[in-house]
Write a protein that binds this DNA or RNA. Structure first.
Length: 111
DNA sequence: CACCTGACATAAT
DNA sequence: AATTATGCCAGGT
């Protein structure tokens, strides 16, 4: 029988990112840059990498992380609109609202 | 082992 | 105002 084995231990950096993301309450979102600052890291890009890498399933609500412009940049490692709309749906079901441009309304962003 | 690339953000040109 | 360069971190080639 197949066992889902953790590929490799997440790096220390990734663990910190995940821990932080786990704290994001439903119905709120944060930006990559915000996370980066919380971690004292000067690169939001690194955050994106950590999340992209497919965190352990829904354990880490990575769908609550958006760009600074409040656009949804990616989900499940993909940048396709289809994935993005799913991300959007998830957020919607948590009560987050969007404007006509597909940006989350500023009110929901922490920071 | 060296180089490229990416779910970003910001400062400098 | 628009493009380019830098920062950071890990995986992939």
């Amino acid at each position: 029988m197949s066992v889902q084995q953790p590929r490799v231990s997440p790096t220390q950096f990734q663990q910190r990112v995940y821990q932080l993301v786990e704290k994001i309450p439903a119905g709120r979102v944060v930006t990559y840059g915000w996370l980066a600052r919380q971690l004292g890291c000067n690169s939001s890009r690194a955050i994106g990498q950590a999340l992209r890498r497919n965190p352990f399933a829904p354990r880490v609500p990575c769908h609550r992380v958006v760009g600074k412009n409040r656009l949804l940049t990616g989900y499940q490692g993909l940048t396709e609109n289809q994935s993005l709309s799913r991300k959007q749906n998830l957020l919607s079901s948590e009560g987050v609202e969007f404007d006509g441009d597909g940006k989350v309304q500023p009110h929901y962003v922490i920071g």
